[in-house]
């Protein structure tokens, strides 16, 4: 049976995520409201100069399809309001977007839907990737609220960093969709990829009173501690 994944963000992180997941045989739905800009090309290597001005989601989907995968792109901003439509029957959700609020929204939605997910982020020389699955600590257990803007658009990022973090996120995602929960409830933190590629891997515990976990399907709550 073909597994379906929702990819939120078609940029520097979404690119390697989608290419890897597409090559692994997942059917992808990719959402991103933006168009490709020339300034993106140094870190969003899934695009070429010919893609400039075109919707990122559609061009990334085309790149996946060109490699034998199955994908469709939606030029839209992910919002909780239409997430149920976009995310219907998803087996996996991966996030590589640049908006702190959206990351929490995606994670909260995945927890409420009982869907495994990966949240990836990269800024400057490092980044992190967090894997979540029903019953494990969630993104909001780790961080309770979005931070003030610490984004590529404002803080910058070294081009290859997003490829590296996106690759790690894809590996975590493929593990989750195969049922491997080894890293569910863990975050991989890369401080500075110029100095070393070994992440700090921290497994954290569900936070009592977490509002996201409270909306999880009852059968999946705190399954690990039951």
């Amino acid at each position: 049976m073909t597994r379906r994944a929702l990819v939120v963000g078609a940029g520097g992180l979404g690119g390697p995520l989608a290419l890897a997941l597409g090559a692994a045989g997942l059917e992808l739905w990719i959402v991103d409201p933006d168009v490709v800009e020339a300034s993106n090309l140094h870190r969003q290597v899934q695009f070429t100069p010919a893609d400039v001005g075109q919707p990122k989601a559609a061009r990334l989907a085309a790149a996946v399809v060109a490699r034998g995968g199955v994908a469709r792109g939606f030029q839209t901003r992910w919002t909780p309001d239409d997430a149920d439509d976009l995310g219907e029957a998803m087996d996996l959700v991966v996030d590589g977007c640049d908006d702190p609020g959206t990351k929490f929204g995606v994670a909260d939605w995945a927890v409420a839907a009982g869907t495994p997910y990966v949240i990836a982020a990269a800024v400057q020389l490092g980044g992190n990737a967090m894997a979540g699955a029903p019953g494990a600590a969630c993104y909001r257990c780790l961080f309770e609220a979005p931070a003030p803007a610490l984004q590529c658009a404002t803080a910058g990022v070294l081009g290859p960093v997003v490829g590296a973090i996106g690759g790690v996120a894809a590996a975590l995602a493929i593990g989750l969709v195969r049922g491997d929960r080894t890293h569910a409830g863990s975050i991989f933190v890369f401080d500075d990829l110029r100095a070393g590629a070994d992440p700090r891997i921290v497994r954290f515990q569900p936070r009592p009173g977490c509002p996201a976990c409270a909306r999880a399907p009852v059968a999946t709550r705190r399954a690990e501690s039951a």
Binding site: G11, G96, L150, A153
Partner: peptide, 13 residues
């Protein structure tokens, strides 16, 4: 002691 902030970064979505 590691300080780990929530960050974004990747693409607008």
């Amino acid at each position: 002691l590691a300080i780990v902030p929530a960050i974004a970064g990747g693409a607008h979505a």
